[in-house]
């Protein structure tokens, strides 16, 4: 399984005076069992990019290749592709429409042509993965809390069992508790299903802990595509793009400059604590 973009260009209002390039020659390759963070400032083109990956938008120039086949070529079934590349939009809870949670989650698998029983089976699996308790299966999705609604909506895409799951700002508008719950669940899904997950965000702190590859997009171009540690070493460039390294990176850099021999590559709070404690302990 491989999803690849080649020199992808997308222009809004193409051919008019208002034409604006949202994507300007994007080349990325997404393989199996990856956990990717896609980061960019508001208006950098990240939402536009992900809508190309499942064929919702048609590129002005360039190609998107799914297992080597051009998704815009004649005869390519883009509806089928959307089952393989699951896209969860921002505020996905606004897409809920069915009378019960279970039925809503069944919508996706049924569109893939599954029977009622198979769809329900997959829906249950997906709801378990997103941590929705069985007692809610028959209640109306509109009666749930904000965080629950969002998890049901994510389950709605997950139930199609996509090989690539893309989540656009899954934590937007949630409190810290809800945020950690969602991100923890997503990380769990990635581990358990072995599928590739792309987390789209504008905040490094959100994703630094989880992902093992970060793609930074700026003004429609890929700025960095590397492992987190190496991306975070470009703090100044990131700041110019309106982004920042995780807060912990700043703490470690400050400590280092103050004369402590700490590890500036620490990304998570735990790594940072270990590194700092390692420096402090010998003094006791």
């Amino acid at each position: 399984m491989e999803l690849k973009t080649q020199n992808l260009v997308y222009e809004y209002d193409s051919g008019t005076d208002y034409a604006k390039r949202a994507l300007d020659g994007v080349d990325i390759t997404i393989g199996k069992n990856e956990f990717i963070g896609l980061i960019g400032h508001t208006g950098s083109g990240k939402s536009t990019l992900i809508q190309h990956l499942n064929g919702l938008l048609k590129a002005t120039e360039g190609q998107v290749l799914w297992n080597g086949r051009d998704i815009y070529s004649a005869g390519f079934d883009r509806r089928e592709l959307r089952g393989h590349v699951g896209l969860v939009f921002q505020y996905p809870e606004y897409q809920l429409f069915e009378t019960t949670v279970l039925k809503d989650v069944c919508f996706g698998p049924k569109n893939r042509g599954l029977s009622e029983e198979d769809a329900i089976c997959r829906a249950r699996e997906a709801l378990t993965l997103t941590g929705i308790d069985e007692k809610y299966y028959e209640s109306s999705p509109f009666d749930l809390s904000g965080g629950q609604k969002r998890r049901v909506a994510i389950a709605g895409v997950l139930a199609m069992q996509p090989e690539i799951l893309i989540l656009d700002e899954p934590t937007a508008g949630l409190d810290p508790g809800g945020r950690d719950e969602i991100l923890g669940r997503v990380a769990g899904i990635q581990r358990e299903t072995g599928s590739t997950v792309i987390l789209v965000s504008h905040s490094m702190d959100d994703i630094a802990e989880y992902v093992d590859r970060i793609i930074v997009i700026d003004k429609g171009c890929i700025a960095f595509d590397d492992v987190p540690v190496r991306v975070f070493s470009h703090v100044e460039e990131l700041e110019k793009m309106g982004l920042s390294a995780p807060q912990i990176t700043y703490v470690m850099h400050t400590l280092k400059n103050a004369g402590f021999n700490v590890d500036t590559d620490a990304i998570t709070v735990k790594e940072a604590v270990d590194s700092i404690m390692g420096q402090i302990r010998p003094h006791f």
Binding site: R79, F89, Q95, F107, N111, G156, V157
Partner: peptide, 16 residues
């Protein structure tokens, strides 16, 4: 705008 967004979200779930 909202209609467009919802439409895309449902299309991502395989709606036709």
């Amino acid at each position: 705008e909202e209609t467009d967004k919802i439409k895309k979200a449902q299309m991502a779930r395989g709606a036709d």
